[in-house]
């Protein structure tokens, strides 16, 4: 039972003691728990990477539409814009968020994605991590390693807080995804385990309190754009950590703060579509257009 960490602090201890990366500890933990070989586990993670890459491409085409018709075509528009303009947020950042939105559109159109950690946040890890990795010339092996890091961070949130919008709001869902991507980017770029946890802490601190208020209760709007934001958040936080900035509040306490904020959030702001944007006159009108009269309020 050597690799079974339950907190960020324990994870850092194991990394320090054994001179291992977060990715390596997470892999050793999985081997220990599942009794599967490291190769087999990496192989399954490679399959997930490929689903992510396929989803990135699939949503960039013209004509993608969600089941409700609420979103679709945004990623295509973004790539058209980038073909004729110099994006203000910079090429790499712009591509990353375009990819994130592409994956979200695939999800909303009942296509195949990897929940990371949830489907509502499935654009962020591909958008931030995979795009950055590809841009930096990382191999599939290196990307798989980075996904291992991401899963370690997601595990800590799942274990010690929540990753469900219905329990902790959007901060829990897209926040966790950003934290995962951000820490993984840091480790992929050679940062230390402590720096990776700092990056994860930054992402959460940046969006603490973000509510979950999906229009018509569908994981589409504002979700797709929040995945774009989460992608940017992950990349910014990774840069800050790689520059040596450290989190004032330790990772585990940030996770706990997020959890407690989620607990006191009104249920109307936790995926029920009864508050926030979903409860605006236009949000209600959209819901009634999709579901029929009377279905506007939650």
């Amino acid at each position: 039972m050597t690799y079974r960490f339950t907190t960020g602090e324990e994870l850092l201890e194991i990394c320090g003691e054994k001179k291992m990366t977060i990715a390596q500890v997470m892999l050793a933990r999985e081997v220990e728990m599942s009794k599967r070989s490291a190769e087999e586990i990496r192989g399954q993670m490679l399959d997930s990477l490929n689903v992510m890459k396929t989803a990135i491409q699939a949503g960039l085409h013209e004509g993608v539409k969600s089941v409700s018709g609420l979103i679709g075509g945004e990623a295509y528009k973004l790539s058209q814009y980038a073909a004729t303009h110099e994006p203000l947020s910079g090429r790499d950042m712009f591509q990353a968020m375009t990819n994130a939105m592409s994956v979200m559109e695939v999800n909303a159109s009942m296509g195949r994605i990897v929940a990371s950690p949830t489907a509502g946040s499935c654009g962020i890890v591909p958008g931030a991590l995979v795009s950055t990795g590809l841009r930096q010339g990382k191999t599939d092996e290196e990307l798989v390693e980075a996904l291992l890091t991401a899963s370690a961070i997601g595990f800590l949130f799942s274990r010690n807080a929540t990753v469900a919008g219905s329990e902790g709001g959007c901060q829990a869902e897209t926040g966790t995804a950003s934290a995962m991507a951000s820490a993984a980017i840091v480790e992929m770029m050679g940062g230390s385990p402590a720096a990776a946890l700092s990056a994860a802490s930054f992402t959460i601190k940046n969006i603490l309190g973000l509510v979950c208020d999906p229009i018509a209760g569908l994981v589409e709007c504002p979700c797709a754009k929040r995945n774009a934001l989460g992608t940017a958040n992950a990349i910014l936080s990774a840069d800050m950590a790689l520059a040596g900035l450290e989190t004032a509040i330790p990772f585990d306490e940030v996770v706990d703060a997020m959890y407690r904020v989620g607990k006191v959030m009104s249920p109307t702001l936790r995926e029920t579509a009864m508050g926030g944007l979903a409860a605006t006159p236009t949000g209600i009108r959209i819901a009634e257009r999709i579901f029929g009269p009377g279905h506007g309020r939650g």
Partner: peptide, 19 residues
């Protein structure tokens, strides 16, 4: 509490919502 990494990065699924 003993999540596998594939509970976190996963499942591979048909959208739109994991929950």
């Amino acid at each position: 509490v003993d999540y596998s990494m594939f509970d976190i990065l996963g499942p591979v699924m048909i959208g739109p919502s994991s929950s």
